[in-house]
Nucleic acid binder design. Structure first.
Lengths: 338, 338
DNA sequence: GTTTGTCCTGAAAGCGCTTACATGGATTAT
DNA sequence: ATAATCCATGTAAGCGCTTTCAGGACAAAC
């Protein structure tokens, strides 16, 4: 193996193959027909010199980055890894690289700090939940940067959005609690405030109650934050204040963990005394005790679908403005079924 | 907000501020002192034009990509998301972007396909487990591309490696099974063949047995593959063949899920009849039933440490050739402790 | 034989930056 | 006062590609 001091450039290849750099570029990109014999010589030279085109030079010259940006509020949990899996596979399938950035919590500290991802280094952006401020969405949209939102809607601009059937999923599982298990005082734990999924799930919860002639009792609605600890504290608080309830719809599966922990610590039998259900169907749901009844969200598919729409946008094709993926109730034991 | 047809370039800023592009570049990068008053004018122009430097142009001109590449065999599970979290945060902290690529399973299909990550678009590479073939490692090393390996050692080249105390962690937990719970016939489930972690854990398992005067019985060593399904099948097979055992060290936590499933399905009481322990301490370990005794691996820290070493290499500083992070036994109930 | 196409290839102009190197005014030493 | 030194800034040469345009070769058509 030769150890060139400086890696080969397109000029080296051209020289070695006895052609111009334009021709090398053409066989590299297949933009124009090249006599097969010449192309062969170029390919040989490429192999011989171990030539790899410099991405930056290509990007600069072609004004296309071939890169997708992914913006997330945070990286954690099983939810995230499913989504990334879908995104990464789809992006690669479409020939794009993936640049990832988490916006983190203290975003408001630097309100106008420039995002490290944007029009200058990506062909398009995927934004999950509240990772992008409205103002920034508007700006990016106005300069024509392709944008796709996941689990978040934005009115005013025509931005493709991928989300899931939160409301009906939630309504189904709450209805199940009422119909199959006769529960009447069902706690709902909200997710983070900015989280649209949570708002829709709450709406589904309310609708299911009303459909069955039950009042929505504000005392039964509390903050779970889609987090184990927050949910645990919420249930402990309810217990401490002697609020009566016979079921908990925990907002998501992560929060269900906290709910189960709090209930078990308090000696409340699940599901005999209190039913517990979640949302998402993360991989561990079947392994909780009791195995968690929940709503399956096609998370990986959200990721791949988002990439699909974004790529369409980048190619100047029409994209679907709203993709609503179906959810499905998964009955296990924590609701009371056996 | 103005909607420029073409985004501003450094030349536009220079014109607006009445300076040369070199001066703009200098205030952008802080490479040379610039009269504060001039700098201020430039900053104003930048803001006014909504200027963002094009990454590609910078990369091309400076010959630094400011990007780290991450190579993974796959994206899945809680393990991965902890690691990525550590990596992403550290990379950003050091001012680098992150490009991710999963090599996937069928790598041998295209033995010489060029990796999409390498010397042409990253300043350095992070490789996890078996994501890089030896030949490619050698090539990258020989051309001087900074490289850091995680959970994988490579002899012959001086490449910094980050890994964890697999052997002693495994030895401790197996010793605990023997000493505290009197177990003698302990099953060990191997991980994937190429996985070094697995080999070290097996070594720890063997040493612990020998230290306590127990024979290593090959019949008790089986393949768990660090996967739920594989582990489940392995235990079912052991049960079907009536191999007697009173404990299972499942290789990792993911496999422990399969073990618990198989055991429970067969009506074997855990931990009364059989103790089960894992490795990693993924976030769900406390929520299994029974809560899983395991070994805590500082996964997030592996990621951040790897970035730290890689950045040192990139800066031309000396890096530590081997970073061995400590593990710690976490006693819960699945071993028999209460 | 000249003209008109058709193909393939080469020349060269950027893409938007960074970074020697040059310049010239202000400051200090002689 | 003159020369030496500094500093802040400008000039311009690339970085390694893509892409437009032009040109040469050759075949078919007039």
């Amino acid at each position: 193996m030769n150890i060139p001091n400086r890696p080969a450039t397109i000029a080296d290849v051209a020289r070695q193959a006895g052609v111009s750099i334009a021709t090398v570029s053409r066989v590299l990109n297949g933009t124009t027909r090249v006599i097969p014999e010449t192309a062969e010589r170029v390919q040989d030279a490429i192999r011989a010199l171990n030539y790899v085109p410099r991405t930056a030079a290509r990007v600069l010259a072609s004004r296309r980055t071939n890169t997708l940006g992914l913006l997330l509020p945070e990286i954690s949990g099983a939810f995230f890894s499913s989504m990334l899996r879908g995104i990464e596979a789809a992006a690669r399938g479409a020939g794009f690289d993936l640049l990832i950035h988490t916006t983190g919590e203290p975003r408001h500290a630097l309100p106008h700090a420039r995002l490290p991802l944007g029009e200058h280094n990506t062909d398009g952006l995927l934004a999950f939940t509240a990772s992008l401020e409205n103002e920034e969405i508007t700006r990016l949209y106005s300069i024509g940067l392709p944008l796709v939102l996941m689990h978040q809607t934005f009115t005013g601009c025509e931005i493709p959005t991928i989300t899931i059937e939160n409301k009906s999923g939630a309504a189904h599982i709450v209805a199940h609690l009422i119909e199959a298990h006769g529960r009447r005082r069902i706690v709902f734990l909200r997710g983070p405030e900015s989280h649209e999924d949570s708002a829709w799930r709450e709406r589904g919860y309310c609708e299911a109650l009303e459909t069955h002639g039950l009042q929505v009792d504000p005392a039964l609605i509390s903050l779970g934050g889609f987090q184990r600890e927050t949910a645990q504290a919420a249930i402990q608080d309810l217990l401490a204040r002697d609020v009566a309830f016979d079921a908990v719809f925990s907002g998501d599966d992560e929060a269900a963990l906290g709910v189960l922990t709090a209930l078990q610590a308090a000696g409340v039998a699940v599901p005999q005394e209190v039913s517990v259900v979640g949302f998402d169907d993360i991989p561990f749901a079947p392994f909780l005790s009791p195995p968690l009844t929940t709503v399956r969200a096609p998370i990986e598919q959200v990721g791949s679908e988002a990439v699909k729409q974004l790529v369409r946008l980048i190619r100047g094709e029409r994209a679907d403005l709203l993709t609503l993926l179906p959810t499905e109730m998964v009955i296990r034991n924590s609701c009371g079924c056996t």
